[in-house]
């Protein structure tokens, strides 16, 4: 057995880490959200006016709703791409399975920023896609809505978060004993029934985990809207960024961040509860 002193010693580094880089910043953020700025000076006098502003000015609610809609769209698209991919790899890919798995993972090693710029190049008015359309004589002038729109944000975030959906779904599918598939066929179920009655229900924890990843990560994203979103694709994190930057209103930015944090934590909690219900 380990001594108490040893256990404390081992626990120290992670506790320090969590304290310094998580608890202290969150505490500061929470404190700021109750303070104010007057004439460019921070006034440490706690009240609720930042939260009142947050709820009374419709622009913030509008951006938040747009953010959630984009996040929902990204989640849906990532699931529609990631689930079939994981299913194919786990059940039908055969020998090249390992290779294909690595190919799905590789993009995760490429810088987020590089992938963002790649989409700029693809979707822009002088971009690859527009050039292709014109080459085919489908269009005569660049299609403008491709870039600097919520559509572009959804495309880019879907590309980035599909592997995050793929991974937990793939892990869940790999854990399904293949004997259950045989048992299902033995009892008279074809491929479609076996999928709907056995494979899908048993992969729901992975599906929920993947959906949570995609939604929560999209919710807080600010680079995609910055790179490809334009004015119509602005998301809540961009508002926070501008409040902390040009607008120099840290307290209001902190209040929005606290709101976002509450939404995120509630979602994680909910997803955790749901996953437990589907685990056997």
């Amino acid at each position: 057995m380990y001594s108490k002193a040893y256990k404390k010693l081992v626990a120290l580094p992670p506790l320090l880490w969590v304290g310094l880089f998580l608890l202290v910043p969150y505490a500061l953020m929470l404190a700021h959200s109750f303070w104010a700025v007057h004439d460019g000076m921070l006034v440490r006098q706690p009240d609720l006016h930042n939260y009142v502003t947050l709820f009374s000015k419709p622009v913030y609610a509008a951006v938040l709703v747009r953010t959630m809609r984009i996040a929902a769209a990204v989640t849906l698209c990532s699931l529609l791409l990631g689930y079939p991919l994981a299913y194919y790899l786990s059940f039908h890919a055969g020998a090249p399975k390992e290779l294909l798995y690595q190919l799905v993972i590789v993009p995760l090693w490429v810088s987020y920023l590089v992938r963002g710029y790649a989409w700029k190049t693809i979707l822009g008015s002088e971009g690859v896609l527009n050039g292709f359309f014109e080459y085919l004589h489908l269009t005569h002038e660049p299609v403008a809505f491709l870039l600097y729109s919520p559509f572009a944000v959804v495309v880019m975030l879907t590309h980035i978060y599909t592997p995050f959906v793929f991974l937990p779904v793939y892990a869940a599918l790999e854990h399904i004993p293949r004997g259950l598939v045989e048992a299902s066929e033995d009892l008279g179920a074809g491929a479609a029934q076996t999928f709907l009655r056995v494979i899908l229900p048993l992969s729901i924890p992975g599906l929920l985990a993947g959906a949570t990843f995609a939604f929560v990560l999209s919710l807080g994203d600010f680079l995609a809207p910055l790179l490809v979103g334009g004015a119509s694709g602005t998301m809540i994190a961009n508002v926070v960024q501008s409040l902390f930057g040009a607008a120099y209103d840290w307290p209001l930015g902190a209040a929005i961040s606290v709101g976002l944090l509450i939404i995120t934590v509630s979602l994680l909690f909910l997803s955790e509860r749901l996953e437990k219900r589907w685990r056997y």
């Binding site: 004997g179 259950l180 045989e182 048992a183 299902s184 009892l187 009655r197 048993l202 589907w278």
Partner: peptide, 25 residues
């Protein structure tokens, strides 16, 4: 029909639903 060595019962279904599986499909 087969009785499998490790039984291969569906973990997400009750005993009754397991037994009903073949008839349901």
């Amino acid at each position: 029909n087969t009785v499998f060595q490790n039984y291969a019962l569906f973990p997400h279904l009750s005993v009754r639903e397991n037994v009903a599986y073949g008839l349901r499909v």
